[in-house]
């Protein structure tokens, strides 16, 4: 069940999270993540055939809100923490390469 996490997998995960890792970190995290998975794989030794999956640890259902509107934030407040903004927009780097 448990699969060793190699450095390539760590590199892929880092890319998905948009973070840069050094070679040393990749090696280190590969080892750590593998041992975490190893630890969790103990769970699969249990027979869970007749156990219903848990989707939520709280035994609550149907927590709803009525469809009634309330005032939100001003544009100034919304953009206050933005590192880059222009004409009321958040500014982001371009997404599609040519």
């Amino acid at each position: 069940m448990s699969k060793k996490i190699d450095e390539n997998t760590v590199a892929h995960l880092a890319e998905l999270a948009r973070i840069t890792l050094s070679d040393k970190e990749r090696k280190e995290f590969a080892k750590q993540l593998s041992s975490i998975l190893e630890f969790f794989s103990q769970i699969s030794e249990l027979d869970t055939e007749n156990v219903k999956p848990t989707y939520h640890v709280v035994e609550l259902k149907n927590v709803f809100r009525e469809d009634e509107s309330r005032e939100g934030l001003s544009q100034e407040a919304a953009l206050r923490n933005a590192p880059q903004k222009e004409k009321g927009y958040f500014k982001s780097p371009k997404i599609v390469e040519d």
Binding site: R65, D67, E68, R70, Q75, L79, K87, G88, Y89
Partner: peptide, 21 residues
């Protein structure tokens, strides 16, 4: 009348950017 998770109005069409949030 409102968005899915919060009580912001759903009438955002034609509004200035980042004013209905």
């Amino acid at each position: 009348r409102t968005k899915l998770w919060c009580s912001c109005t759903s009438a955002y069409h034609g509004k200035e950017p980042n004013t209905v949030l």
